[in-house]
Design a binder for these strands. Structure first.
Lengths: 140, 140
DNA sequence: TTATCTGCAAAAGGTTTGCAACTGA
DNA sequence: TCAGTTGCAAACCTTTTGCAGATAA
């Protein structure tokens, strides 16, 4: 998925695609990892994308509402990752925070008796292919 | 699981069971729902358990480290629920925030090629038995 | 006895908001 | 045109920290 496709989805939700959002989105999609708002902002600055931190917060809010970003709680901080608006699960690398989407959900966890499930969430945490053979480990 | 059992686990982690913690734990376990630190604190006040908000934060931190509490990100806020230190999943009622633990994990989601999983998490969201037949709906 | 806890107040972080100027559709 | 967006600064939480006195083990 690219910024162009995102524009369409945003429009469906009465949000607009702007110069700032497009630039941030390109980086967010490219990053392919969990990022805090501050990290996405810093990443943008490093690439000479000069937007305010507030704009980053607002973009993440808008994307989340449109189903194009997923918030994550990891080690006490709130992270976001870009994602498509179709049902999927996540694999997160605990070493580099890389995220892989997992389609083809076959979760077979039964709800407790009498409970009805409206949606579910499955997150796998571990090491991605790249980090498995990585000697320079920074996180457990 | 009761406060008495928690004491044992805490001790294993070099934490202590105090009067304040026991009182908070009783309420936390009784609540059986997702609670923010502020909500747990308010609940305690309402029951004449007079502890500082800081103590609530510290208890939740300690419980989380000991595997006896699970943090949740829901609607932008961080919640906690009491839980045992054995592998399980959660069902959360979107109406009343009631939590049910699901044991007997049979999650069959395949990790992406080359990735190794060290742990996973499955959360089901929906309506509990009680709220299914509840007319007084407060949340979607 | 001593390492751990507690409450308080203050500090630190992270997130949201108000507003005037701007801009995409 | 005009509803939605932006940046900035201020306001607002929420969470953490330092410290002196209390307390489990």
């Amino acid at each position: 998925m690219e910024a162009a496709d995102v524009a369409r989805v945003l429009r469906q939700h009465h949000f607009r695609m702007t110069r700032e959002r497009r630039a941030l989105l390109d980086l967010f999609i490219e990053a392919d990892t969990l990022l805090t708002p501050a990290q996405l902002h810093a990443f943008a600055q490093a690439r000479d994308v000069d937007v305010g931190l507030t704009t980053v917060y607002r973009l993440l809010e808008v994307l989340t509402k449109a189903g194009l970003a997923s918030p994550f709680l990891l080690e006490g901080s709130i992270y976001y990752t870009f994602c498509t608006d179709h049902h999927h699960h996540h694999f997160i690398c605990l070493n580099c925070r890389h995220v892989e989407n997992i389609y083809g959900c076959s979760a077979t966890v039964e709800p407790p008796p009498g409970c009805t499930v409206s949606y579910h969430r499955v997150d796998l945490f571990g090491r991605c292919a790249r980090c498995r053979s990585d000697v320079n480990v920074t996180t457990p």
